[in-house]
């Protein structure tokens, strides 16, 4: 692993996980990053898939996966794939490698909103979050909750952004509230009501999208920087504090974020409406730019 890759994944050592040469019959090139539930590798897909792409991103989940959980995962991925939204990351296949669950998805060169391969303009960020919101809406209309919306799951494609890693956590491990806070500060994107035991809902996903927008534009989280190494401290911090919006957040974006975090009865009701509000805003801004 090169030094720059080490930085990309947060400067943390991945000593526990040497990069495997193969995952099933995929040829691993290098690690792309890691999260709480697993790791993502750049890999050459096997010929049998008949893909035009030279590379795919393979997400390999930590720990063994029972057959029953595997089947639930496959069913969930297929249900998402059937929606055929341009804003949902394309998953080619899932499998068991040894007893580890993995899936192969479309590889995007720029990576995710959490650490994009090049600096993004504010408009690009706005569009990316609105695409993620559209994707979330498509899921909700189909009776599916993502449950893990956060910057690292918003992939920056050439033409549009795509929401990835549908929170399989819950189908793989029932009862799971969130996969963890240890790396990407997942807890700041979880609606506090979900921490208190509510199931993910349209409302909680709007919350997560607002938190994602805030982090991507302001560069800080709603609770400042939460402890990476002490999950319990982070969770207690979130449950006892109110989110505070960063002062460097432009006013028009502040208004949207606020409307995402508001009490559920006043919150933007659906991710679809949020997507519209964000694209409107982006267009207004572009208009100002081209008009001036």
């Amino acid at each position: 692993m090169t030094a720059s890759e080490a930085e990309l994944i947060g400067g943390r050592s991945t000593t526990e996980h040497p990069v495997p040469a193969h995952i099933a019959d995929y040829q691993v090139q290098r690690a792309l990053g890691y999260g709480n539930s697993g790791r993502v590798y750049l890999a050459r897909p096997p010929r049998r898939l008949g893909l035009a792409e030279e590379f795919v991103a393979v997400k390999l989940f930590n720990g063994p996966c029972a057959d029953s959980a595997y089947e639930r995962g496959v069913e969930e991925l297929r249900a998402v794939s059937a929606l055929d939204s341009p804003y949902l990351a394309k998953v080619y296949e899932a499998g068991l490698a040894g007893d580890s669950f993995f899936y192969a998805m479309h590889y995007v060169v720029l990576g995710s909103l959490s650490a994009p391969g090049r600096p993004l303009s504010q408009t690009e960020v706005l569009l990316a979050v609105s695409h993620a919101a559209s994707a979330a809406h498509a899921l909700h209309e189909a009776g599916i909750a993502h449950a893990a919306i956060k910057p690292s799951n918003v992939l920056i494609g050439a033409r549009s952004a795509a929401l990835s890693d549908l929170g399989l956590g819950r189908s793989l491990r029932p009862g799971l509230t969130m996969t963890g806070v240890a790396t990407s500060g997942t807890v700041e994107y979880v609606d506090p009501s979900v921490l208190r035991g509510d199931s993910p809902s349209r409302s909680s996903e709007v919350w997560a999208l607002g938190a994602t927008l805030h982090r991507a534009v302001a560069g800080v989280g709603l609770y400042g920087e939460l402890s990476d190494s002490e999950p319990l401290v982070a969770i207690r911090g979130v449950m006892s504090a109110n989110p505070t919006l960063a002062r460097n957040l432009p006013q028009d974006i502040t208004a949207i974020v606020q409307a995402c975090l508001d009490s559920p009865d006043r919150r933007i009701p659906t991710a679809g409406e949020l997507a519209l509000r964000i694209t409107d805003l982006a267009q207004v801004r572009e208009g100002i730019v081209s008009g001036g």
Binding site: P20, H22, I23, A24, D25, L60, Y70, V74, L77, R78, S81, K90, V91, Y92, E93, A94, G95, L96, A97, G98, D99, S100, F102, Y103
Partner: peptide, 10 residues
Amino acid sequence: FPPRRFDRIH
């Protein structure tokens, strides 16, 4: 991580 099982998604 030997191959054990594959299922097409897309």
